[in-house]
Simulated assay, not measured.
Amino acid sequence: MKIAIALVLLIVLLMAILEIRRELRIFQVTHYLIASPKLNTFSGERKIVFLSDLHDQQYGKHNAELLNAIKKEEPWLILIGGDMMISKEGKNFELAREFVAQLPAIAPVYYANGNHEQRVKEFPKRYQMDFTLYRQELEALGVIFLENETVTLEKDQVRIQLTGLEIPVENYQHLRMPPLALSEIEERIGQAKDGYNILLAHNPAYVEVYKDWGADLILSGHFHGGIIRIPGMRGLIIPGFGKYKRYSGSVYLDGDKRIVVSRGLGNHTVKLRLFNKAEVITLHLQGKEGIMDKVKN
């Protein structure tokens, strides 16, 4: 009996290892329908591709597989939620720059920083990377960075306010998330403006504050889907040991508000994914009511 149990456990372990190796090499396209009365004048729908947490991952030569998947979506906009690079000694931003540089040929690109870009920007000597150069090179190709900034987009009589939020670096601690007050957010990006407010905010630990600020659609990442997911449940491994598991990676509804947390496209430090495929997210913005969670492999 003990031998049989040990054999079963060994088979399960081997299958898990094989699945982890597979998931580290693939990604999927996840579709969410985002509905709001504020979008009622849209003629049809507007598709937005949301990318987060690439961390220098490559899918094919020069990320050709990833770029082809994005092109196939034919997006109206491409929004980046941060962490395209890895802020670590001995790393550089070349892989991130090469990938992002190819996106403006597909659709307009708006880029909000994650904690990795922010650390490189604030501590250039520590990481031996020049974030100013990275930004300038991509801006020259048409990428628009939103560092505590808002742009207004007009489409079909809808005024979309697109904001990129940077929170203090200390709010990215692994074991303890310091509080973040609404007043601190408003000091950085001001109050929410009239229209449909999309907030690119990398860290989903502060979703409740983002909602209080007035965001209609919150786009986050950072938690990598919880690394390991039990089907039908939330991610298991995220900062805070469970306090923030509600927002580990999916779409969440709160009245007319929508929160989308990407499971990310890459990995760093802990190179592990189980039942938690990397993803490109396509948002289908519509005025009618409804919600869709459809996965394409």
Rank of each mutant, 00 (worst) to 15 (best):
N203F: 13
N203I: 13
N203S: 12
N203Y: 12
N203E: 11
N203A: 13
N203G: 11
P204F: 06
P204R: 03
P204S: 08
A205Y: 10
A205K: 12
Y206W: 13
Y206L: 12
Y206H: 05
V207N: 09
V207P: 06
V207K: 07
V207W: 02
E208G: 12
E208Y: 08
E208R: 14
E208N: 15
E208V: 12
V209T: 15
V209H: 14
V209W: 09
Y210S: 12
K211G: 06
K211E: 10
K211P: 06
D212P: 08
D212Y: 07
D212Q: 06
W213Y: 04
W213E: 01
W213R: 05
G214R: 01
G214E: 05
G214C: 09
G214F: 04
G214W: 06
A215L: 06
A215S: 05
D216G: 04
L217F: 03
L217V: 12
L217H: 02
L217T: 08
I218V: 14
I218P: 00
L219V: 04
L219K: 00
L219S: 03
S220K: 01
S220F: 02
S220D: 02
S220G: 06
S220E: 01
S220R: 02
S220N: 05
S220M: 02
S220W: 00
G221P: 01
H222D: 03
H222L: 07
H222V: 06
H222S: 02
H222Y: 08
H222K: 01
H222W: 05
F223L: 09
F223D: 00
F223R: 00
F223P: 00
H224P: 01
H224Y: 07
G225L: 02
G225Q: 03
G225N: 03
G225C: 01
G225S: 00
G226L: 03
G226S: 07
I227E: 02
I227F: 10
I227W: 08
I227N: 05
I228R: 05
R229Q: 08
R229N: 07
R229V: 04
I230Y: 14
I230K: 14
I230H: 05
P231L: 11
P231N: 10
P231K: 08
P231Q: 11
P231F: 11
P231R: 08
G232N: 10
G232M: 10
G232T: 08
G232K: 11
M233T: 15
M233R: 15
M233I: 14
M233Q: 15
R234D: 10
R234V: 15
R234P: 07
R234G: 13
R234L: 15
G235H: 03
G235P: 07
G235L: 12
G235Q: 07
G235I: 04
L236P: 07
L236T: 12
L236S: 13
L236H: 10
L236C: 14
I237H: 06
I237W: 15
I237T: 09
I237N: 04
I237D: 05
